[in-house]
Design a protein around this nucleic acid. Structure first.
Lengths: 222, 222
DNA sequence: GTCTATAGCTGGATAGAC
DNA sequence: GTCTATCCAGCTATAGAC
């Protein structure tokens, strides 16, 4: 029955979100889904496979929702507003908690890391598209390739959500979004200065530089 | 014996780093430390308490190493170089992996979240000090309070390290640091334009704004 | 497709010898 | 402080009735 599969996936998502990877056992998930423990293995083969299915489901839900947002981002400021909306919605729904649990949980199950990594690709390419759109219509396109910035955006959202999930305080993160919004408004206003902002592209700029005590910065003792 | 305590803490760190929270059982840690499983409970009372001791140990090691770095950060560029050094050293040592495992693992153990949160405070205040030093000697001090930026820095490092740990690719993150370094060099050069960059401080700037379809951005359907 | 029952294992935690 | 031995709970996974 298709209902049972779906119920198990929903229960897996709920369990990952509320109790974490370490507590996401077949028994606990089945209880959450009000069905028998053996059905986990009948429908998915193993607990890990069920958890991966849950992650893919979450990934799909996010993609659908994000694509709506993508249509609306024109300026840098709008992109940041979009990111803020995404951030809050993800916190409410627990989607990123599920991702974070799977990322760190994948250290405990051989081979799971690669599968999670594959599942993350659409999120990155979504962010990349959004960033590229904004860069194209702004004078800051030369700052960095969209792929690099997108990696930073995904990492930043992940980190912010983990911290917010830890102590329940989302205001620190929201304040950052508001600052970024204000900064973006300024940047959108100083386009004429573009020439100043063309940077030499890749490659490490210089050796560790201000070597007062040479080598001291290179290999710390921890 | 003090040696056993230390050995167990080291083994707990190694286990968290290599096999994750879900696999960090008393038996496995004791095996890693070449000692008896019952000693975990004799010395620490419970597995969670041992894991917390491990996190505190890691936290302490990082503080010591970071404080050295702090003495050397003067300009924005130097701060970013410092962050880059920290990032690589943490990846090599696995320190942030331990933190990430404990953050997500804390969802599985009642009360653990608060303890991890407390343990995170020094990291944030370290970042805040570093940021404040740089802001004070730059024209961008008015962009945002150091505490807000520090929160973003900690979140960014956490997210970047989780992604790097997932697929073993640290080059995406390093490229970002190099971009940031180049940007910082430019910013250090355009101090005269300071006036342009004074922003209205707190408070959300405006309602969701470009409401082509009003309300569509506010409550996505996932 | 769903259930019960169970094998076989690993987990946290304790008691008690040394 | 360290070890052995042990209790019992919970886990994955499978076999087999329905």
């Amino acid at each position: 029955m298709r209902d049972t599969r779906a119920a198990l996936i929903d229960a897996a998502i709920a369990t990952l979100r509320e109790s974490g990877f370490a507590a996401a056992s077949a028994r606990r998930i089945a209880a959450e889904a009000d069905c028998n423990q053996a059905l986990v293995f009948y429908h998915f083969g193993s607990v890990s496979d069920l958890l991966m299915a849950a992650l893919e489901e979450v990934s799909g839900r996010r993609m659908a929702a994000y694509r709506e947002l993508l249509d609306r981002t024109g300026t840098l400021g709008e992109l940041i507003d979009g990111a803020r909306t995404v951030f809050e919605a993800d916190l409410d729904s627990g989607n990123v908690t599920v991702l974070a649990e799977m990322i760190s949980g994948s250290h405990s199950v051989p081979g799971l890391g690669e599968r999670v990594s594959v599942c993350l690709a659409p999120w990155r390419s979504f962010a990349e598209t959004a960033v590229r759109d904004v860069l194209a219509s702004s004078p800051f396109g030369s700052l960095a390739p969209a792929g690099e910035i997108a990696h930073g955006v995904v990492a930043g959202l992940l980190g912010l959500e983990m911290l917010a999930g830890l102590d329940g305080d989302r205001s620190s993160a929201l304040a950052l979004f508001d600052r970024a919004r204000a900064l973006a408004d300024v940047l959108d206003r100083i386009r004429p200065l573009t020439g100043l902002l063309t940077l030499a592209p890749p490659a490490r700029p210089a050796p560790p530089a201000p070597a007062a005590r040479p080598g001291a910065l290179c290999r710390p003792t921890w």
